[in-house]
Design a protein around this nucleic acid. Sequence first.
DNA 1: CTGAAAGCGCTAACAT
DNA 2: ATGTTAGCGCTTTCAG
Lengths: 340, 340
Amino acid sequence: MRQVTIYDIAKEANVSISTVSRVLNDTAPVKGSTRAKIEELIQKYNFQPNAMARGLLKNETGIIGVIVPDLTNPFFPEVLAGVEHEAMQSGHTFLLSNTIGDYAKESEYLSIMREKRVDGIIFMGGRINLKHCEEHLAQELVQCASVIPTVLVNGGLRGTDLIRVATDESAGTALAVQHLIDLGHTEIGFIGGEIHMTTTSNKLRVFRKTLKDKGQKIREEWLLPDSFSIDSGKNQMLKLLAMKERPTAVFCVNDYTAIGAIKAATEAGLTIPDDMSVVGFDDIPLAHHFIPELTTVSQQAHELGKTAVKVLKAMMNKEKVKKLTSLEPQLIIRQSSRRK
Amino acid sequence: MRQVTIYDIAKEANVSISTVSRVLNDTAPVKGSTRAKIEELIQKYNFQPNAMARGLLKNETGIIGVIVPDLTNPFFPEVLAGVEHEAMQSGHTFLLSNTIGDYAKESEYLSIMREKRVDGIIFMGGRINLKHCEEHLAQELVQCASVIPTVLVNGGLRGTDLIRVATDESAGTALAVQHLIDLGHTEIGFIGGEIHMTTTSNKLRVFRKTLKDKGQKIREEWLLPDSFSIDSGKNQMLKLLAMKERPTAVFCVNDYTAIGAIKAATEAGLTIPDDMSVVGFDDIPLAHHFIPELTTVSQQAHELGKTAVKVLKAMMNKEKVKKLTSLEPQLIIRQSSRRK
DNA sequence: CTGAAAGCGCTAACAT
DNA sequence: ATGTTAGCGCTTTCAG
């Protein structure tokens, strides 16, 4: 069961291990006949050089560490697919960890990744989405980034200058809210998100600003952050429906809450979009398969993943990179919104 | 930027590297004062032992390689979450690869995983779902499994005795079809899947058998395998709707095709389940959020992932394991099916 | 074109 | 309780 090593090959070929290494890496000329013999042996034993030994020497692993908060939220697999695509171009693989928003797990994984000497880290979710991140959590990440190239995706750490890649959520929110306004809606609600997270507070800020700029007044009771799940969307919509005055449209912080909202409304007997317009955010694959198809803002998840890896690779090559690489979101108009 | 090593710590603490190693691994008694000093230094420099060096010596990596065919199909992230959960218990991380059903990519990743000396491999999708797998693809996997503990999830390789973990799809299919029959349906269609894949041909076989056992006749024109996507479900439903005689219920090979089927039917003006019952397979998270909520068969994806890792760990410990560990699927009755 | 030897960072005997 | 030493499997000078 012990794997074949370069020594085994060398011995059987009657050459030194250096020669075997040379044909393996094509790093110096080797006589045709010996090369042939060695290659034959490699074939025969299905020899694969030990990446740990090589990595120890070259001080690189070919592994990118990826930290995501929630694999079961389809947005992240989408990003991962982009990461994978781009990583594969350069022969990198990735070590994945799912932190389910648990800061201790984040720390643990960060530590494991350092031990494993991953070539770079892509960090999503958790602490980098907090409005106020505890100092020691922030420091840990800064520490880590000082020794391993690290990029933060769709998040950041105030007061640090860690490299970021993010979709411009503010622009996306403006797009969505403006869309609703353009459709003639003047009574608009806000559903989902957690108020202590930057993504939510940003969206809420832009939501307010966009309405105010158009001279619309904000109805505080229609602002219903809570969390990011489908159930959360449902619950908040239920609250809205229970009010005597309801908005004619709602902006949801993500597609999950939008789906929940639509579901609750539908179950309550409303028809979306006839009775109420709903727009989501993210454009998860399901958005255009849901009934009704969801009007939403595309974060270009796949592109986001690819971009993150590109930036990371640049960092690994010690190239200079921008502090923030920003992706433009796009409004995707489908069926869940319509003229008032 | 060079990482701190055990030598650096040893030198600064005025001890030998062995002593440092001892406190690191708690492998032998060390005097309190020296231990304290060393620990302080470790803290100070945030020293993390190099996993490659350690792995080279111990001949293990703490990494499990996971090969999945399609990350964007929510079934797999669900399995992965289970894998992760179980792997973490024993301090394992996982290297992920997405093969999008490309056999060449599978080979490539298999090879990378061997180079990286992962402790075990979990293989899903692709070649192990083929009714007729090309010999060299099969051999490659057998080869690989002979040197690295490997478990095949929801698939197998005829003629080999590779270890498998799988949900009992036949039982699941019988459950679903029987459910439809119990509801009084006598005209049942079959949608989705690829006929050259074992999963599909198994489902189709059981579908036929269950109907036949109940004395129902099979309408060949209502058997519409195609592929696994939402669009495929849509297209096949469209075909069904275009026929002059339609079934009153359909069994779909997975939730994606079921969603597509429902969508097409809804757009065509039918109401599900009033006008037609639809049952899916997998129970992806979305199944109970879709409108109408999907009646489906749960594969217990999370459990599947956990079980795969458990079996893998047993193999890594050289314990004896069953050739096939089978999970019982469960019928989940929701809104998309009803009495005829 | 090829071999010898050093060394990547660590663990595990073996000494002391 | 601690130090010395021999590797783990490979790449890379440095000599021939």
